[in-house]
Design a protein around this nucleic acid. Structure first.
Lengths: 239, 239
DNA sequence: GTCTATAGTGCGATAGAC
DNA sequence: GTCTATCGCACTATAGAC
């Protein structure tokens, strides 16, 4: 099964690609017209927004802060979005979209139910590792969205969870997993996956790799779920 | 083992008690002198602050919002704290203190390592259920604290985690738990416990009780940790 | 395409009447 | 002990020079 290094190469998820996508979809709100200029500045603006927001919150970040961080003027910033609120909404929307898209394609590529579960766990962790600031932002700033975007954020959260619920139910029906509560179990898995990007500082300072974390989560989940997995297996950590 | 209803009765953690404690420790910053008046207003102010902050963030809550919610004037509010920042710091500090105090006393009351682990899980969940707005606030607003208080918040987070690490290590040394990575496992447990108060809306709408959630977490953790726990036990959900 | 200057708003905080 | 009125400031957003 794939490790993070491969995933990272294969995906090549770059902020630049996301920004180009945003450019094409928001041509009307963006006053500047040269693609190369726009993409360069959007990358700059979004990275700075994520940095400042993740340090002290989106609301606490003023556009003067953002202008300083990007080395752009206030006026120039407003050539790339029409209001501070819109800036928030765009980052949320496109982050969520990329996540959903990749998660789906990676799960579909597997057949066995245990492989699917492992692939879902790994893909979610690897994605959140590649795009940690986006994931963190998505989580912490959801309450600052307007009502409509907030609904979308909740839907996106439940949609991700459903990937896991479906896999677990499939495993139960196939007689490979114990008959647990699939919805609740999926919630627990999601909680463990979220901790990875929400407490990045903790795992960083302890020098835990994303692969090690993925193995751990998979281990915990499989011990709970998989029928006939002997307790002996636990020993591979000890022996 | 104790259930939530008992815990709730036994603890009788009231916002009023916390506010009285705050009053005694901050007499110098609080201009009003009659205890009864102060406690009544502090309860009002803190509840309103938690409500508004948890809806839209502490920074986004203006003191005019707070005045409206508490039915106090701007001037009156400033009789109970000296700045908006101080209001944030006080809520954080006292919330963290109550948590640490209760968690410690509940764990100390047990002897067996498995009982300790279950007690720690249940106490954390039950406390976060009783004081959900405080826990949520503590988590989401940590980044808005000044640097000094931020350090304290991180220390508090690690301190809570250490309760779990210690119990797991004790279990491993006693030969009752598998030789897992105690620190990492404690992180995972904490992640699952935090989801309970961070995603309260989700569990509420699904009508999951805190007792059911506690049993689930305990089940997952014990299946991963406890040596010689037969897989047959998983079936109690199915059969 | 980017800048500076500024209009207009709402904020945190305080003074002084009652 | 609580109120109203207001100060000074920092914010979002825009207009117009370059």
């Amino acid at each position: 099964m794939m490790r993070f290094a491969e995933f990272s190469k294969k995906m090549n998820v770059s902020v630049e690609d996301i920004c180009r996508e945003i450019f094409y979809e928001n041509r009307d709100h963006i006053k500047v017209k040269k693609e190369a200029v726009v993409v360069r500045n959007l990358v700059n603006i979004y990275n700075a927004t994520l940095k400042l927001s993740n340090e002290k919150g989106f609301h606490a970040m003023s556009l003067r802060d953002l202008a300083k961080e990007t080395n752009l003027s206030l006026g120039a910033l407003y050539s790339y979005f029409s209001s501070k609120e819109q800036l928030l909404g765009i980052i949320q929307k496109h982050g969520a979209r990329v996540t959903g898209r990749i998660l789906q394609s990676e799960i579909e590529a597997r057949t066995g139910v245990e492989e699917k579960l492992l692939a879902a766990i790994k893909t979610h962790l690897y994605l959140s590792e590649l795009m940690q600031p986006w994931f963190y932002f998505f989580y912490m700033e959801a309450k600052n969205l307007n009502k409509e975007d907030q609904k979308k954020a909740i839907a996106s959260e439940l949609h991700t969870e459903k990937f896991f619920t479906d896999i677990i139910e499939e495993g139960i029906q196939a007689g490979r997993f114990a008959a647990v509560d699939a919805v609740l179990t999926a919630s627990l898995i999601k909680a463990m996956l979220q901790d990875w990007y929400l407490k990045r500082w903790k795992y960083s300072s302890r020098r835990i790799s994303v692969d090690a974390y993925a193995d751990l989560v998979d281990d915990v989940v499989k011990k709970y779920l998989v029928l006939g997995s002997s307790k002996k297996e636990v020993c591979h950590d000890a022996c």
